[in-house]
Amino acid sequence: MSNAKNNATAISTYGLGRKPSIWENLSNEKYFKWILIAPLLIVLLVFMFYPLIYCIYNSFLQGGVSGDSAFIAFENYKYMLRDRSFWIPFSRTAQVAVICIFFELLIGLGLAVLWNRDFKGMNLVRGLVLLPLLVAPLILSLVWNFLLEYNIGFINQIFVTIGIGRIKWWSLQMALYTICGITIWQWFPFSALVLLSGLKSLPKDVFEAARVDGATGWYTFKRLSFPMLSPLIIIIVLLRTMWLVRLFDPLYGTTRGGVGTELLDWMVYRTTFVYFDVGYGSTLAIMSLYLTIIISAILFRQLIKALNTDK
């Protein structure tokens, strides 16, 4: 196929039996494709490599921004490995990611199975359920912070009315789970609709056959639907992991990293922008970057695979 395309180019460029002009040379696809991509590469180079090199360089230094820094080789990294204020937010971030993804998938799968039928108002339900998905997480966290306020919050008022009593949503024991809850609330429709689109695209005849053979609903789900959905589940898990390790905005809107809710990015932010410890902050940032590179390496191979098998 690409041979035919090359021939076509050859005809259009050289077929007239004269020397090609500069423009024709440039529009030869050998150069043309790189010309098209050049601006993107320049932007990425400037905006990616400058901060990266800056951070790697500073992670070997001790001290702040004022210039009185000293070269200390790997001391920052050594310190980090022993630093509890690194490992606690680190494991907390992992905890948040696991909790959120688990419940989002569970609720999402349930709703996808429920909605996988023809019913009146399907489009309306889908449109409504998608509404909060694109609203800024920061704004939603502010709204939830207000709704979950101890005295005047709407949720606690309902709980008092129905006799459960007020709940301290932002206490040391609860706050992290409250933040998980807010995140799950915003994102379970995403899982539900991705999985629903998967269920709708499954071949009908296989399920017919299973039903004729007398398979129960649960058995069909376990042996047919679930395995066929697993590529989509992988995509959801990877995408959500990628977003959740970067969780920052909901913290700003609610606890500001207090009451046992400090996560990875908040800690980097606090070290660099509150304490202005550039050296150690850079070290933490580099570490955070390594972690995400590992996740994204898995993630985007899968995504590109998914895009290409589709064709």
Binding site: L40, L41, F47, P51, T272, A285, S288, T292, S296
Partner: peptide
């Protein structure tokens, strides 16, 4: 190259912020 491009989406904002 496409892979590198999309990986940059993972670049943490806080890392870029200070420089």
């Amino acid at each position: 190259l496409l892979f590198v491009t999309i990986s940059t989406r993972m670049f943490p904002g806080v890392v870029a912020a200070l420089p």
